[in-house]
Nucleic acid binder design. Structure first.
Length: 828
RNA sequence: GCUCCAGUGGCGGAAUCGGUAGACGCGUUGGACUUAAAAUCCAAUUGGGCGUAUAACCCAGUGCCAGUUCAAGUCUGGCCUGGAGCACCA
């Protein structure tokens, strides 16, 4: 074994051996229990960044740890390779996005191998390849058959910069998630997936996900946004030509129904024209035209002063017989509820602001216990007792919600209603680099799905990427015109492609059976390997990818393709990698290139460092000094092994009774095994695992410093310590430990060795430090033997000269003994 | 505004059940080795009492204010600050 540590040399050597020997291939059949460890697959953007390094290292260590602990581990990787950056690159260079993507995949594959990750490369999936997107299209057709896919004209989010529509989930603060430009509303006919049909079960099943963090679960719950309320129908008393009889509203505050003083419909409300009097027509039209022009940001700004115009017509409140006016205002949203709102200015802040501005009347119906008379300064939105509410006066408002709705149900003008904020998932994209939506439009038959035996609908190659203002796919002379599969007549293909999130909603299923060319996956294999036991990825997917994937799993279960209902049993959302307190980004210029770290320090240092300083879920601040420190530590480990090479025997034997310092070292090793094993098992606390590596290495050095000459017992003990250390470090320092294992004469791979076991009797020090407190404050510490009884502890504590001095002349009220730890003497 | 998470030395962070606060590392300071440097090793490093050293001791201390307890970083209530998500969702 060389005296000095040359990571670049040994890493290259072992990577070649592992790769050529397919050392991390996972058999489908095994006597061992299965374990599925998965990182969120990358977009092949060009190069790995440190976020990838962190993500994949975490999952790799988990995979290796589980393998050493007797599991048959599935640990795959693939590429989320459709998407706009490839297309943009292609437009810039007038090249094929596929070439750009393939080159990136090749480079990033090399980098992943340089990181020493234990992937089963035979299961690699690439979403932009026909052997994958064929099945994405096939799954689209299954959902279509189930009635979960439909096309409709709707107000959709349009990003001008990207030249495509976006899903609601991809609009962040009114801006495009990818390019940050302001999103506009457009009315277009688009394809949707009916995720709302699963809103309730997606919400309820969050409770089953005990292995997910509360933060992600709450984010999803908020996004789904379930609320309980009622629908009330208000008769219209003076519609101009009488064909709109009533306006239904959704409310979560049926208890305030007696306080209604006006009603608001959204500017896009379907019956708005029929509800407008001729005198008001012009003003209403102008208001609506103006609303259409506004961007989402302008319209949704909460700071904006509310505006609206009256329609001139009126409704009757069936509870009170009161007549109140109809208005249109853009604070009512057409997509939510019924698109109309009953306004109770006294008990809703938005209605209050609006009523103040337009001098609309107010009527208090819930009494504020602290200010019973009025709501002059602001709306009272908390709980209270009903007043001015006829038969419901005196009732608590929480009870009145139910009672009032029940009355409406009985008398036929209302119903209980559960409402969700979640909207259907818009999956059409007017872009080239995606999976073509497999439908055709026939002049005679209308929308016709492409028959399954004609899949995949291939992306055309004969397109012009330089085209402006429309999707390159539409420029293909061969793609669009086709034959209707039903009538054989002329038909045109759908030129929209699918949102890439459709491709990534099922990739984790494909890994179970990646090379299957007959089905998207075999049911048996997918049921065997899934659900994913541990999923690791960034928090930025808390809603998007994770919600879509949960939906897909449930929908495919209902299609009979699999028999589980949640895809990811445990989820670890890793924190961001920061540098100087800010997220690493090219624009800030604070990125660190993984290649440089591999080159200067080796992958083992990178792996060790990325796990060392912060727990995985927290943000990680990159520091060059920290890398240096990890590199020095690995050098220290290397020296410990190389200088002792002749003293270490793989087949060491420990005597049952050992000399004190040897006994202590053996105990230290057992403590380390126990601690490291538990830290990995509980929440993957790799930062403390690594501090325990250091403690162990420090202990071995300290032990050795006291032993200039080693006798036989010393050598056995040292062998035990060092071999245990190598095995414990093998999931992290994968190359160094493999090299050491072989240099010491080990057979096979260190990564095929069983995990170390500890002896509970040895995993503790031979003596303990007794802490003595007086009135709860530490006053003395006394070394005592490990096996002492509580009585002896108490006696020892009371016999301490310090304690005697402190308790002199006082009465001992009580003595608390914590076994093997502490005595607290309470005195007065 | 609503929801969730977090707050511990100069820094990253540690502390199963409430039981020695600050593990481990980074940084800093001093020292050894060296012609010198690098590397390596040793020591100190929460603040204050305490501006000579050594040894010892004492006090305070985990965002703030209360509470429960023999004992609180940890539990309870109320705040403050920071971060994240949602947000005119009726």
């Amino acid at each position: 074994m060389k005296e000095n540590y040359f990571p670049q040399e040994i890493e290259k050597k072992w990577q070649k051996i592992w790769d050529e020997g397919k050392c991390f291939k996972t058999p489908d059949e095994s006597d061992k229990p299965k374990y599925y460890a998965l990182s969120m697959f990358p977009y092949p953007s060009g190069k790995l960044h440190m976020g990838h390094v962190r993500n994949y290292t975490i999952t790799d260590v988990i995979a290796r740890f589980k393998k050493a602990n007797g599991f048959n581990v599935l640990h795959p990787i693939g590429w989320d390779s459709f998407g706009l950056p490839a297309e943009n690159a292609a437009m810039k260079h007038n090249a094929d996005p596929e070439t750009w993507t393939d080159e990136n995949i090749a480079y990033m594959t090399k980098q992943l191998k340089m990181l020493g990750l234990s992937y089963d490369w035979d299961r690699e999936v690439t979403t932009c390849k026909p052997d994958y997107y064929k099945w994405t299209q096939w799954l689209f057709l299954q959902l279509y058959k189930k009635g979960l896919v439909y096309k409709k004209e709707a107000a959709v989010n349009w990003c001008n910069e990207c030249g495509t529509v976006l899903a609601n989930e991809q609009v962040i603060d009114g801006k495009c998630w990818r390019c940050d430009s302001v999103v506009e509303k457009k009315y277009l006919s688009q394809w949707f997936i009916k995720i709302t049909e699963y809103a309730d079960v997606l919400l309820e099943d969050l409770d089953k996900l005990t292995g997910w963090g509360d933060n992600v679960k709450t984010m999803q719950a908020n996004w789904i946004g379930k609320s309980h309320g009622a629908i009330f129908k208000f008769p219209v008393v003076d519609a101009p030509n009488g064909d709109v009889k009533e306006v239904p509203v959704y409310t979560t505050r049926p208890d305030t129904v007696h306080g209604i003083t006006y009603l608001v419909v959204a500017p896009e409300y379907k019956d708005i024209e029929k509800l407008t009097t001729p005198e008001n027509k012009q003003a209403v039209e102008e208001y609506r035209a103006n609303a259409r022009k506004m961007t989402e940001i302008e319209r949704l700004s909460t700071e904006r002063i509310k505006t609206g115009v009256p329609l001139g017509t009126h409704c009757k409140n069936p509870f009170t017989g009161e007549i109140f006016p109809l208005w249109t205002a853009d604070y009512a949203l057409v997509e939510y509820g019924t698109g109309a709102v009953m306004a109770v200015p006294t008990h809703d802040t938005r209605d209050y602001d609006f009523a103040k501005k337009y001098n609309l009347p107010m009527k208090v119906v819930i009494q504020n216990p602290e200010n019973p008379s009025n709501c002059e300064k602001e709306a009272y939105i908390d709980e209270g007792v009903l007043i001015n509410s006829g038969e419901f006066n005196g009732m608590k408002n929480t009870e009145a919600k139910k009672a009032i709705t029940e009355k409406a149900v009985k008398e036929g003008f209302g119903e209980f209603k559960t409402q969700y904020r979640l909207r259907d998932w818009l999956i059409s994209r007017q872009r080239y680099w995606g999976a073509p939506i497999p439908v055709v439009y026939c002049d005679k038959c209308g929308i016709v799905p492409v028959p399954e035996d004609q899949l995949p609908v291939m992306l055309p190659k004969d397109v012009d990427f330089k085209v402006v203002g429309k999707s390159p796919i539409t420029t293909s002379p061969t793609f669009k015109d086709t034959v209707c599969p039903v009538c054989g007549g002329h038909a045109t293909r759908e030129t929209d492609t699918m949102d890439t999130f459709v491709c990534s909603s099922w990739y984790y299923l494909r890994y179970a059976d990646a090379k299957n060319d007959k089905e998207c996956f075999s049911k048996d294999k997918v049921n065997h390997w899934l659900p994913v036991d541990q999923y690791v990825g960034g928090i930025e997917h808390a809603i998007l990818h994770l919600l879509y994937s949960r939906f897909f799993t449930k929908a495919l279960r209902d299609c009979g393709l699999l028999n589980f209902d949640e895809p990811f049993k445990n989820l670890l959302t890793q924190g961001m990698v920061l540098k100087d307190g800010a997220k690493m980004s090219k624009s800030k210029g604070n990125t660190v290139d993984p290649d440089e770290i591999f080159e200067n320090y080796g992958a083992d240092t990178a792996r060790l460092f990325i796990l060392s300083d912060s727990p995985p879920a927290r943000d990680f601040d990159w520091s060059d000094a920290g890398v240096e420190g990890c590199y020095k530590f690995l050098n220290r480990v290397w020296r410990l092994i190389s200088t002792n090479q002749d003293n270490i025997k793989l087949d060491y034997k420990l005597n049952s009774s050992l000399e004190k310092s040897n006994d202590d070292l053996v105990r230290t090793v057992h403590i380390a095994i126990k601690g490291i094993t538990n830290d990995i098992s509980n929440d993957f606390q790799f930062n403390t695992v690594i501090s325990k590596y250091r403690e162990l290495v420090n202990a071995i050095y300290d032990w050795q410093a006291k032993k200039p000459n080693l006798n036989d017992e010393d050598k056995q003990v040292l062998s035990f310590a060092i071999i245990s250390m190598i095995k414990l470090m093998s999931p992290v320092a994968v190359h160094l430990t493999e090299e050491a294992w072989h240099e010491l004469g080990g057979e096979g791979s260190v990564h095929e060795q069983e995990w170390c076991k500890w002896d509970e009797n040895l995993a503790k020090a031979s003596s303990i430090t007794l802490v003595v407190q007086v009135n709860g404050k530490v006053k003395d510490k006394i070394e005592v033997d490990e096996g002492v009884s509580d009585e002896e502890l108490k006696a020892t504590a009371l016999a301490s000269p310090k304690i005697k001095a402190l308790t002199e002349g006082m009465t001992v009220v009580k003595t608390i003994v914590v076994p093997k730890k502490l005595v607290n003497i309470v005195v007065k």
